[in-house]
Design a protein around this nucleic acid. Structure first.
Lengths: 222, 222
DNA sequence: TCTGGTTTTACGGTTTCCCGTAAGGAATAC
DNA sequence: GTATTCCTTACGGGAAACCGTAAAACCAGA
């Protein structure tokens, strides 16, 4: 039982065209497509109201900002809003993001039904993913089963990222307490900050703050 | 006078499909396409040898690594190799990369003829760019004229990036001299390293190494 | 080979960071 | 109320980074 009503949220025109083509190759007529998250949500909302809800949302994760100010600025927020409006909506994420932690979070927190990485055989994969989801299955890249072990998992709290972001902005460690006090963030003592950084470095096996910053940039933690 | 022989180097299948479609819409028959840089270079080389060189190369910048080990691993290297083989070859870069410094380097160092950013209206832009290049013009995003001023331009040498990469890997500053000696990189004195870092931070207006690492990660210098 | 200039290195003082220990404070249990 | 525990902060010694200065090495050209 193939889908009938599909919505594509993807800001890159060229990618959007390809996705549409893949959909049409599956004999799904008139896939709808939008370039902004806000538009996507508006359509989902309206379709749901008039009793003709979408069967599947295919969405990118990162959307470029431009002069049209948007309420929903990325795919994760769109999925959250969409599921809120229509909990049963199937969601397939199509993104270049390769960080397992990010994908894992989407699966766990947002309950997405599939993930296809923009990569060498993405068009073929997209087709397989849609077919799988149509059958009630889920579709995730094969590597997804492995990487859970290899993660030196440390859950960065808001507190952690605040401190690390300050360091990355050139604030010296001993100046951080005043910054935290300004924003009423506790603990603000220099010792607490030192301890925290020490803990993080220790858990991740790092020896310097420089290494930590590099890591956080690589994994988009800051 | 439109192009006759076009080669597309793009590893994302979905994007490749769209680019081909755009080409065909311009009445260019049988655009060739490859998913690996090495394949692209091999075709350019062969075509040149038999006296039927390509008119235009459309290439991405970043190519995903997989189990096929490649000699040429990114678009910049491909362009360099291609221009070496066939200096007159027109090159259009089609990439998600938005950093003006990167694009500028391509224009200055590699003499590319056009750049289209993977973004909201990229398919339309791609068409315009191809038409412009076919007429002997160049095509670059409108914003390209502005950002030259806003750059705190510092030209990172190999030496600089080596040091910074070591820092980002957790090597302590005072340990760096031995690393450099192992690789016969001079100067290797701790003082020289300190001076160099001091200079870089100074030019860019940074106060800490952490800030420098963050910057280098953001701009893909390391 | 000498000389002038540049680059590299060595050295010291100061600041910052690192890290262990202990003192202070707040919340909870008894 | 006070004991216990947990979290936060203060302190101090040692290591590393920072930064200016001066000595040493290097490298032209005469």
């Amino acid at each position: 039982m193939m889908f009938e009503r599909v919505l594509i949220a993807e800001d890159q025109e060229s990618t959007s065209i390809s996705v549409r083509k893949t959909i049409e190759d599956l004999n799904i007529e008139d896939p709808e497509y939008v370039f902004y998250c806000d538009d996507a949500f508006a359509r989902i909302q309206k379709a749901n109201k008039i009793g003709q809800p979408y069967d599947l949302l295919i969405t990118d994760l990162s959307f470029e900002e431009d002069h049209y100010i948007q309420k929903i600025v990325d795919g994760a927020a769109l999925i959250r809003a969409a599921k809120d409006e229509q909990p049963g909506l199937k969601v397939l994420v199509f993104s270049a993001e390769g960080n397992p932690a990010v994908i894992d979070a989407l699966i766990k927190d947002l309950g997405i039904n599939g993930y296809v990485r923009k990569a060498r055989h993405d068009a073929k994969e997209l087709r397989l993913a849609i077919e799988a989801i149509a059958k009630g299955n889920r579709y995730f890249p094969a590597q997804m089963k492995v990487p859970i072990k290899e993660r030196n998992t440390y859950d960065f709290t808001n507190y952690d990222t605040t401190i690390i972001a300050l360091l990355a902005n050139g604030v010296k460690q001993k100046e951080i307490p005043e910054y935290l006090q300004d924003q009423d963030i506790k603990p603000s003592g220099l010792s607490s900050i030192e301890k925290r950084l020490n803990l993080i470095r220790d858990v991740l096996g790092f020896s310097t703050n420089e290494q930590l910053i590099a890591y956080c940039k690589d994994f988009k933690i800051i």
